[in-house]
Computed example of a mutant assay.
Amino acid sequence: MEVLLAIATLLGGITALWFFWDKISAWLSGGMNVNSHDVGLYEEYKQLFISNGVAEFYRQHDFLGSFGEELWRPLSRYVDNWHTVEHEFTHKKLNKLHKKVYENAAELGGAIAKYTVPIGPGGHMRAVKPDYIPIGPIPEHIKEEAREINSLVPEFIKAHESFVRYANRKLGKGNA
């Protein structure tokens, strides 16, 4: 009889683990529920970088060439505004990954702000080469500034992709 009781207890324990596994794994990974604040914040992030193709632009662009001001504004706005507590995710790992994105975005944004200037009529474009430099060979210091910006892009994209993949999994979004 004791053996039967032990087997039943063991089976009951295994069944309870199986039944509550999603809650146990969520607790072990840092959070149980999808937080509406996190979902809303991630939607804002996607509007800045994904929905409009800005992240893809940064992945592909060579900063020796010019680019539209509308591709700079989302990164600039992000760096200027997303360092506040209102832009922290409640899920620990999600917030940690987002901080990595922000750190890399701040470095990239700082380099772009430092080395690019508005060009063209009305300043609707940006470039490392100002309008006042005559047509001809690009000065070496301008090429170096573009190389510096370009060197910061891979880490930003890597952090962005890690964050997006994890957020899509944790927040239940199929794609971004």
Rank of each mutant, 00 (worst) to 15 (best):
E88H: 14
Y132K: 14
G123I: 12
G122L: 01
I138H: 00
P139R: 11
I119S: 06
P139E: 10
G136V: 15
T116F: 13
N81I: 13
N95D: 06
G120Y: 00
G123F: 15
A113M: 06
R147I: 05
R126K: 14
E144N: 09
P121V: 15
N95Y: 01
G123S: 11
W82K: 00
K93T: 15
P139C: 12
I149H: 08
K96I: 10
I112W: 04
T116R: 03
G122W: 00
Y115N: 04
K143S: 13
I142T: 14
K100R: 02
K100D: 09
N81H: 08
G122A: 02
T90K: 11
A111D: 13
G109F: 02
H141K: 09
A127I: 04
H141G: 01
L97T: 05
P139M: 02
E86A: 15
W82L: 01
K114C: 02
G110I: 14
Y115E: 00
Y78T: 04
K143P: 03
H124L: 15
I138G: 06
L94V: 03
E145N: 13
G136M: 09
E103T: 08
E145D: 02
E140Q: 13
A113V: 06
A127N: 09
N81C: 11
P137Y: 05
P118M: 08
L94M: 10
I112A: 04
N104C: 05
I133W: 01
D131P: 07
K99Y: 08
I119T: 13
V101Y: 02
K100C: 01
P121W: 01
I138F: 11
K96P: 01
V79L: 02
V101C: 12
D131W: 10
E107T: 06
N104H: 12
H124M: 15
P121S: 12
A105S: 09
V117I: 09
Y102P: 02
K96F: 15
D80N: 13
I149E: 00
K100Y: 04
K99E: 03
G109I: 04
E107C: 03
K93C: 00
I138Y: 06
V85Y: 09
T84E: 06
H91N: 11
G136Q: 07
R77M: 11
P130I: 01
E88A: 13
K114E: 08
I149Y: 01
D80T: 07
P130Q: 00
E103M: 11
R126G: 02
A127Q: 02
A146N: 14
A113T: 11
K143Q: 14
E145H: 15
R147F: 00
M125L: 15
V128Y: 06
H83E: 01
E144S: 12
H91E: 07
N81Y: 03
D80I: 01
Y115T: 02
V79H: 00
G109N: 07
R147V: 12
A111Y: 03
I112M: 14
V85F: 06
K92N: 08
P137L: 09
E144I: 12
I142G: 06
I142W: 12
E88V: 07
P121F: 13
P121M: 04
P134S: 05
L97N: 02
I142F: 09
E140V: 09
T90I: 09
T90R: 10
P137V: 14
H87T: 05
P118E: 10
P118V: 07
E88F: 14
E88Y: 07
K129W: 03
G122Q: 11
H91K: 03
I142C: 02
A106S: 08
L94K: 08
